[in-house]
Amino acid sequence: MSGNNNITRPQHRQLRFQVLRYDPATPAVPPRMQAYQIEEADGMTLFIALNEIREHLDPTLQFDFVCRAGICGSCAMMINGRPRLACRTLVRDLPDEITLAPLPFFELIKDLSVNTGKWMRGMSERLQTWLHTQEGAPEADIRRIEERMEPELAEQIYELDRCLECGCCVAACGTAQMREDFVGAVGFGKVARFRLDPRDSRTDEDFYELIGDDTGVFGCMSLLACHDVCPKSLPLQTQIAFLRRKMAVMGLKGAS
């Protein structure tokens, strides 16, 4: 027998966390990295790990979790330099040293907590992310049988509708680092979703008004980190490319 069998690996690793701490309410205290060490446990996610740190080591550490099941998008943060949902990140997939930082781009609340909600509401207002009906059209008679839709089309719309507005795509975006007013892949995904929906009365002219400039599709540098980091694996690459083509055509029409 090889001697390797006798080597007993410690059952659980000691995880060393480096967490970015900063409270904008006390600007005199500069941002700093704080170290915490905890023991790994079976099935431990960053949700479990961060709560353990808060329960046992530091009750002041601020972070956001809501569903802790990967469906609400509250807990996006930079995990070893990459934006991910913390709640569904298993520590067993990470090295012993884990560095956590808040998502860049969004307004910092404190420590790992950022105000994605405020930015997303602004995005929704700007892109009008609701179904538009013809002006003056009567409201649907909800006593009557609903409008029909092809099952495949409903599924395609849902595919784009799965966006969580977690902010990972914007945090990973090269353009967003340079211009604050960029609508980001989340915004393009919304436009693509309503553009696909035959119940929405908006035309490509209308969508061009919303995203036909450098704060919209023409600001995208096609680096497509958004596509790589999307926790829901939304087809952002194809949707953005498609929108750019459509909007470029609209732009040319406008120029002629």
């Binding site: 609701w130 179904l131 409201e139 649907a140 909800i142 006593r143 009557r144 049988i145 609903e146 409008e147 029909r148 839709m149 092809e150 099952p151 409903a154 599924e155 719309i157 849902y158 509708d161 309503f194 929906d197 119940r199 929405d200």
Partner: peptide, 19 residues
């Protein structure tokens, strides 16, 4: 309840559909 489903359909929910 049926009115609620139909209102939501008119608001854009991509309900799964019968084939």
């Amino acid at each position: 309840a049926p009115k609620a489903v139909r209102e939501l359909a008119a608001w854009g929910i991509p309900w799964s559909r019968v084939r």
